[in-house]
Each structure stands twice: as structure tokens, then as C-alpha cells.
Design a protein around this nucleic acid. Structure first.
Lengths: 155, 155
DNA sequence: CGTGTATGAATGAACG
DNA sequence: CGTTCATTCATACACG
């Protein structure tokens, strides 16, 4: 995920090479960087105005449309939650060591607990009590032109 | 190879987490088997709950995370469909070759494990019935339906 | 040792 | 908003 996409995106040299159908938007490293930064700044669901502004700014780095920005935020937010949910739960089972790199010695009985009863349809347990605040955005960023300058003031 | 050939990866002690750079998850033969069985049982898009359960269960055979299960199903389904579509469009006269496996699958390793009680689905098979439905997705796939309101005026 | 193929992972786009 | 689809990138492994 994030840890991966730090340095290679930009498939400029990808197989696209010549044709590059470009059926879909392919963000450049800079664009991703800015978007990520905005996200980290607290922006989760930009308004139409913000979207257009962001889009306009990012167009400097390459072709981009407003809807791309819109989708980007939608996806980023959704995936963040999804990931958190998953990791959270599967963490419970990985009690041994975070880095199961080498468990040559300790590893053994843990696996003894035969988990044969694979029952996937339990009682529809509630995973997470809806919502977790995270409404910390807003403040002064949802409007005009504030937070958008970042340090990228290219122009 | 086309099928889930039982004789190609199966590194019992595979690096399902035992080592290596942890670049990416490498499923164990048992893990693949169970997943495949689940898939064949009709499960195509497990819910988050199911994913976690499956993941927990499969962790018995080696390191695995929820997202691995998630991706596995996503990929498996996508690939199946992709293949199907490919054949459909590409279908010219390939009637003769059928699907003769070029692999001498006569030798099945110790795949006789007989999936424990893999009766994960009680008689509740009705659950994903509407999702399964024999893949009757319309080929037409008219995406011309501009329901995209997005509340965004641009575009 | 280089190349093709199977497949894990990521993500843009879109649906319900 | 959560979930699902489609396409693509990256990598492990088999083949020759």
C-alpha cells in the first residue's frame, strides 16, 4: 500500500510506451503526493469547489479531471477504513510476533489447536459500532482557498 | 495449469511467512486448497466477517492476513470471468482442443488430505444465491447508463 | 540465465 | 459510504 507506492509509480516506462491507451487516469507521482498530503491534512470529502481547485492545481503535473480527484478521495477514504478494519481484526490472531520472519524455535504448539470447525456463518456479529468520530476535518478548510497551497506553490 | 493444478506450488513449508523478504504472500498448498474449495462451494465474494474467519482458519497452515484472502477471492473471480469473456469473444473454433491438460496430472501428490470438515456452509446456501446465479451477468454490459449524478456538475 | 505464465497486490472507476 | 468490477503493476516460478 502506502509503503510500497512510494517510489515507483509513474509507469512512464511501463508497457504503455507507445500507445498508452490511457483509458483511465494514471496519476503522476507529484499528483499522488499532493493528494496524499491533502488527505493527511484532514481533508476527506472535498466539496465541489475544492475538487475543482485541486484538479486545476494538479493539472500542472499532468492530465487530470475533477472526477479523478473526486474518486481519489472516495477511494482513499474507503480503503483506509477497510484496511484498518481488517488489520485490526487479524491482528488478534497474530499474537505471536509481528515479524514472523523466523519462528523456528517458538513455533509449534500454537498450531496445535485444531481449528476444524469452520463455521463461517455465525451470528452476524457487529463488527464495529458505527462510526468513529473522525469528523475532525472542517475547520477552515472547507471553503475558499486556504489549505490548498501546501508547499507546492509551483506557480 | 489452467485449473488449480494440484501440482505446482505446494511447498509445504513454503514461505507462507517463513522467510524471505516477505514481499508478498505465498499461499500454502493447503491454503489454496481450502480457498479453492470454498470458491467451488459457491463463495465468490465473502463478506468482511467471512474473510476474517477464513483468514483465521487458514493461519493454521501458515502466515496469512485478511487482505490476502480478500485479494484471493477478488482475483480468482475476476480471472475466471476474464477468461470466460476472453473465450467468448475469442471463440472462433476452438472446439477441438477442448481443455486437454498438457500436464501429466496423473500424479497427484499428497493431495489426498481430504479437506477436513469443509462443510462451511450449512444448508444456508441461499445466502449468496443471488450473487452466484450462474454468472448470468449480461454480456451486453451497457454502461451507457449515465446514472452518474455525483452531484458534481463538472464533467 | 532469459522469457512466458500464474498470480498476489494495488487502485481507478463505478454500483447499490 | 461500503462494496464490487476491471485493469494494471510486480513478482514467483516453470520452462527451455
Amino acid at each position: 500500500m502506502d509503503e510500497y507506492s512510494t517510489g515507483f509509480c509513474i509507469r512512464a516506462t511501463g508497457r504503455g510506451g507507445t500507445g498508452s491507451k490511457c483509458g483511465r487516469w494514471n496519476p503522476t507521482g507529484e499528483q499522488v503526493k499532493v493528494l496524499t498530503e491533502l488527505f493527511r491534512s484532514g481533508l476527506r470529502t472535498p466539496t465541489t469547489d475544492q475538487i475543482q481547485k485541486i484538479s486545476a492545481e494538479l493539472s500542472f503535473y499532468g492530465k487530470i479531471e475533477s472526477k479523478n480527484v473526486f474518486y481519489w478521495f472516495q477511494n482513499h477514504k474507503a480503503r483506509e477504513r477497510q484496511k484498518r478494519r481488517r488489520i485490526l481484526v487479524d491482528d488478534l490472531h497474530t499474537t505471536t510476533t509481528t515479524s514472523s520472519k523466523q519462528f523456528g524455535s517458538g513455533e509449534k504448539n500454537e498450531a496445535e489447536r485444531v481449528i476444524e470447525t469452520l463455521q463461517l456463518f455465525p451470528v452476524k456479529s457487529r463488527l464495529y459500532a458505527d462510526d468513529c468520530k473522525e469528523n475532525t476535518y472542517n475547520l477552515g478548510m472547507e471553503m475558499d482557498h486556504p489549505t490548498l497551497d501546501l508547499r507546492l506553490s509551483f506557480v
